[in-house]
Design a protein around this nucleic acid. Structure first.
Lengths: 193, 193
DNA sequence: CGCGCCTTGGTGACATAGTCACAGACCGGC
DNA sequence: GCCGGTCTGTGACTATGTCACCAAGGCGCG
């Protein structure tokens, strides 16, 4: 078991892989970054889940292609490659959990492709706000952070948030967004699904 | 073993899953389509590979989210769910092959997200042309097909092809594109990787 | 407090990409 | 040669992304 503080970079593109990572507490954010600095969040790894970047590394002996950062303080367990293979062979529970995680992540990525390739910024931003808010009625995030969340640019987010605010869907202050008009936001988010 | 002719729709979004599909010959094209008709190619399944849409179905008992079409005549093997589970448990060779396919497809999807979210149409189109041409020096495809290949629109492709042609990178005729200036096309394709 | 400095957000101007409407060019069957 | 379908070209407009720059808020420190 290993404790890492918020903000720790767990892996970067081209890093070699140490072992298979299981998250016990906290969340890991996995992102892709282009040379021009634009960034997009691929997915998050939550407690009880396994990190599939490491899966790709271990199975095909490739390196990471994405970057992973501890979004909160995390407790991680790192399973060495040999132990990983033994578990896959002999532990049906481990294997089932692994497969489930792989399939779920796979579906996530397909949804992401659909989102990025086929839907508008307004829809994607609405979905991102709802996702980040969870059951709460507000989100703490900078426009910059929201832009990376949906793979867009800060200015675009600022303008879209202004539109939402004008329509009464949200109320924006520095680093904080209140979801007034949640129902209408949800309607917007589902338009193209 | 099952023979299907080119153009057969093997699965659609929301279909229930019959079993695990292994491709013996031919290729399957897996795509996502939005309500507005825009489409993007997620990946292709080639001989010896396994179809991971079915994987997600079998593991998490979910339905398909993408559409699969036989791009050529295909010979397929369909492994029923029970048999699939038995193979995963007991056949190390099968398991290894499955894992490799999963990891590779996973990496593909990450690349696709990066491509769609972070690079320009010119780059993506250049990459698509090179990918489709393989070792040949020409591609048979309509502008419409190329658009769905990179998740863009036909008009955008027409215009970009015209630009490439004007610069001498390609020669365009109805349904056919000659890759003259391949080297410069490759340079373009790698600019943002 | 007043000052400087960094982060965050706002805005105009422009470039790139996507949408819509429609016309013309090509291709096969007859 | 004519016809109907498919494929491609184009203008006009909207949406999104980029660039440059400034303004506002927060924060430490003399």
């Amino acid at each position: 078991m290993m404790q890492v503080p918020q903000g720790t970079v767990l892996f970067r593109p081209e890093d070699a892989c140490q072992g298979f990572v299981v998250v016990h507490s906290g969340t890991i954010k996995v992102t892709l970054t282009a040379e021009n600095g634009r960034e997009i969040v691929l997915y998050r790894v939550r407690p009880g889940e396994v990190c599939l970047q490491t899966f790709g590394c271990l199975v095909n002996r490739t390196t990471y292609s994405a970057e992973g950062v501890a979004e909160t303080d995390c407790a991680l367990e790192v399973v060495p490659a040999g132990e990983f293979e033994r578990l896959v062979e002999n532990d049906p529970v481990f294997r089932t959990r692994l497969f489930g995680a792989v399939a779920a992540r796979f579906a996530d990525l397909e949804r992401l492709v659909e989102d990025v390739a086929l839907s508008s910024v307004a829809e994607r931003l609405a979905r991102a706000l709802l996702r980040l808010a969870g059951s709460a009625d507000a989100v703490d995030a900078t426009h910059e952070a929201l832009a990376s969340e949906i793979g867009s640019a800060r200015e675009v987010i600022s303008r879209q948030l202004a539109v939402f605010a004008r329509e009464g869907l949200i109320a924006v202050t520095r680093g904080h967004i209140e979801l007034t008009g949640r129902a209408r936001l949800e309607a917007l988010a589902h338009l193209a699904e």
